[in-house]
């Protein structure tokens, strides 16, 4: 009756079933679920977009006046690299896994960022949130911050040459 030996194991073990969804899921504290982007912290810089292996995070620009950081959880591989590289610490890895949906659209989450124009040439420079972060973290004169890199270079060069010129006189 060697085939009955399994019965002893079964009786000894008893019930192991997790009665999800009536009982909590079998989650550990380390589980990586969907990420959450905090719209009050996000700068819209795109560091997460660059690192995201499956392109679940993307920057899209519909109007030209704003960019939207879009998180499409339907393509996410839940690696959490975006949270690691985010300079603003705006991305948090949650334990959310109940993401089922009847449409692809409801799997998308977007944070819209208004763009700032260069005060000199009018080209789009960066997002308002990025601008605020830069002003907060470094003592750059606002005059330079709202310039695109090229205008900034010319203006800086001009200012420097004036100063150099003044010194030689």
């Amino acid at each position: 009756m060697s085939i009955a030996r399994i019965l002893e194991i079964a009786f000894r073990t008893g019930r192991v079933t997790r009665k999800y969804p009536h009982e909590p899921p079998l989650l550990t504290p380390e589980f990586r679920g969907a990420v959450r982007v905090d719209p009050s912290k996000c700068w819209g810089c795109g560091a997460c977009v660059k690192i995201c292996p499956p392109n679940a995070l993307s920057l899209r620009s519909d109007s030209g006046r704003e960019v939207v950081l879009e998180y499409f959880v339907g393509r996410c591989i839940f690696c959490g690299m975006c949270a690691e590289v985010c300079p603003a610490r705006a991305i948090e890895v949650t334990k959310e896994f109940e993401l089922s949906s009847t449409s692809l659209e409801s799997l998308k989450y977007g944070v819209a960022h208004r763009l700032v124009r260069c005060s000199s040439c009018g080209s789009l420079v960066w997002t308002e949130a990025e601008l605020r972060a830069v002003i907060r973290s470094s003592p750059v004169a606002e005059e330079y911050v709202v310039l695109c890199p090229r205008c900034r270079k010319t203006r800086f060069a001009r200012a420097a040459s004036i100063r150099v010129g003044a010194g030689s006189e």
């Binding site: 399994i6 194991i9 079964a10 073990t13 192991v16 079998l26 989650l27 550990t28 504290p29 380390e30 589980f31 990586r32 591989i77 839940f78 690696c79 959490g80």
Partner: peptide, 25 residues
Amino acid sequence: MHTWRIRERVMVLAEYLTGSRKTYG
């Protein structure tokens, strides 16, 4: 069924060590 019951412990351990049950990342 019993082998997979035992295996589930390993899956939970893997998630606890790495953050994911599979494709540990």
